[in-house]
């Protein structure tokens, strides 16, 4: 598969803040690559460097097989980008926004009708052509922004948190659109704070504080976890009522809440019966089960491990 972005050891400082600390990543055509992490992890900064909108302080990067120092214009013309903040004209209609994007890409006027029809079919926004962009729902705004980013048929799409603040149903539709584009061969780099969306990517990089703390095929990340994860629950009781007791029992291990439950991550393997024995002093109603870690668990385990190794 052709590589559309290849970045090695990217460094970026803002004043004294190390925004990126040696990021290496790759985006291939016909695949969806996810950047998963909280605000401030460096996701947007990395994307802006790939787009040539920010200068890096170290490392090397090529985008669409060209050197991003020499061919800025080429990259900007050939990559589709959706910034984090909705940046279409809210007082223009859906149609006017599409037309505007068509015009700025200086494409042949005869192609407009065809393009428009195709994008409407894709986004299902046809019924809303005369609606002002500002009055669209969150999910529809994002579909329109994606349509505009696709106007010039880019081979590479960079989408910065396109589904933040969008309801689960609209998020699902949006990801359906991304999968269609992927099937057409487009390479997509997408960032998200929603761990569940990581599962829809072909490859993910987990980012925290400017570093990649985990990478791989999402399903494999869970399988490759060397330790063991246990889940505790006391029906009818809130997790903080037994969280501190569990923290006491399993000092030095990772103990954290997960919804109404508490998760314990051990570095090695340990038998369920041993865990039961250690926790008999707790509530007799306590339920313990072994669990396959989810990406959120893996993320936390990695962050906690980094902290305790003094790498931070």
């Amino acid at each position: 598969m052709n590589s559309l972005i290849k970045a090695e050891g990217i460094e970026k400082k803002f004043g004294t803040v190390n925004a990126l600390r040696g990021i290496s990543l790759e985006v291939s055509e016909g695949s969806i690559t996810g950047l998963i992490g909280p605000d401030g992890a460096g996701k947007s900064t990395m994307m802006k460097i790939a787009l040539t909108l920010l200068k890096r302080d170290g490392g090397s990067i090529s985008v669409l097989s060209v050197n991003s120092d020499n061919d800025k214009t080429f990259i900007r013309q050939n990559v589709g980008y959706m910034p984090e903040i909705f940046s279409l004209y809210t007082d223009l209609t859906v149609e006017e926004n599409l037309n505007f994007y068509f015009t700025i890409h200086k494409m042949d006027k005869q192609d407009y009708e065809k393009k428009r029809e195709r994008l409407y079919r894709f986004s299902r926004l046809e019924a809303f052509t005369n609606t002002k962009a500002g009055s669209l729902s969150g999910g529809m705004k994002q579909k329109l922004a994606l349509s505009c980013a696709l106007m010039h048929d880019p081979k590479l799409l960079i989408l910065d948190e396109p589904t933040t603040g969008v309801d689960p149903l609209s998020r699902q539709e949006f990801w359906g659109m991304l999968h269609e584009l992927k099937e057409e061969g487009v390479g997509i780099l997408v960032s998200t704070p929603y761990m569940e969306e990581a599962l829809k990517c072909d490859f993910v990089y987990m980012m925290n504080k400017g570093k990649i703390i985990g990478e791989g095929i999402p399903e494999n990340l869970s399988e490759e976890f060397e330790g063991s994860l246990y889940e505790f629950e006391i029906p009818g009781r809130k997790p903080q009522e037994f969280l501190s007791e569990l923290k006491q029992i399993f000092r030095g291990d990772s103990v954290f809440m997960s919804g109404k439950k508490v998760h314990l991550a051990l570095r090695g393997a340990e038998e369920l019966s041993d865990i039961r024995t250690k926790t008999t002093s707790l509530d007799p109603e306590l339920l313990v089960r072994k669990k396959v870690p989810e990406l959120e668990d893996i993320f936390i385990i990695r962050v906690l491990a980094e902290g305790s190794d003094g790498n931070d």
Partner: peptide, 10 residues
Amino acid sequence: TSGVDPLGRR
């Protein structure tokens, strides 16, 4: 807690 890191969220 949207955008907050998983530990901060907890």
